[in-house]
């Protein structure tokens, strides 16, 4: 499978948020303001690529010892430790980057999109390069969905024509449904 088709496929066709329902919590929770949506999206790309870079070789080691089934336990711990470590390292060595991304890092630890991309790279049988491309694409897809969604949500603010029972959470979900509907137009692209 070509790298370009993996990348396009995971950004547009199988968008992690809108088609696979991974990472819904930050998608709905942090998309109110464009700034925080972009920050969160960039931090997710960063962590996804790092997590894949770390977990893919670990899976090969596990497979070597015939204990591939420990995947779930090992991956979640590796991701949690990695995120903590990266946060500390950034704080010490690249304070400017830490200032921009640092606040989002702790919340990504238990983000299902990160664990999801690590496991699906293994399930799909991707090699190392393909896995990294897939993770980058998944992160970019997440960023794209976040930015588009925060734009749509800003139009909802202060809108009084929404029925009372739909205000707040339900209208947010309806908006997400329409964005997801839009992305369905990409199906069959790859």
């Amino acid at each position: 499978m070509g790298l370009a088709s993996i990348l396009l496929g995971v950004i547009l066709v199988n968008n992690y948020v809108l088609a696979q329902f991974l990472g819904i919590c930050p998608f709905l929770g942090v998309s109110k303001k464009l700034d925080s949506a972009v920050g969160m999206g960039v931090a997710v790309i960063f962590v996804m690529v790092l997590a894949t870079a770390a977990t893919w070789p670990i899976q090969q080691v596990l497979n070597n010892f015939g204990i591939g089934y420990l995947q779930t336990i090992v991956f979640i711990l590796v991701i949690a430790a990695l995120v903590q470590f990266v946060e500390m390292a950034l704080k010490k060595f690249i304070p400017s980057l830490h200032k921009a991304l640092g606040v989002y890092l702790p919340l990504i630890t238990t983000n299902c999109a990160v664990l999801g991309v690590c496991i699906s790279n293994i399930d799909e049988g991707y090699n190392y390069i393909q896995s990294l491309v897939n993770s980058t694409g998944a992160g970019i897809g997440f960023l794209l969905a976040m930015v588009l969604f925060s734009g749509m949500r800003s139009k909802l603010e202060g809108n009084t024509s929404i029925p009372a029972c739909f205000q707040g959470v339900p209208i947010t979900l309806v908006t997400a449904a329409f964005l997801s509907l839009g992305f369905m137009g990409f199906s069959g692209l790859v």
């Binding site: 809108l18 929770g29 029972c165 707040g168 979900l173």
Partner: peptide, 30 residues
């Protein structure tokens, strides 16, 4: 399909809001 998931969930929450006059769900935002 995917959009239906969001939509049905939205309708379920809206229905609960409607029948309890918005009292059941304390959380107004995610």
């Amino acid at each position: 399909l995917a959009p239906g998931g969001f939509f049905v969930y939205a309708c379920a929450i809206a229905a609960i809001n409607y029948f309890t006059n918005g009292k059941a769900i304390q959380k107004k935002e995610f």
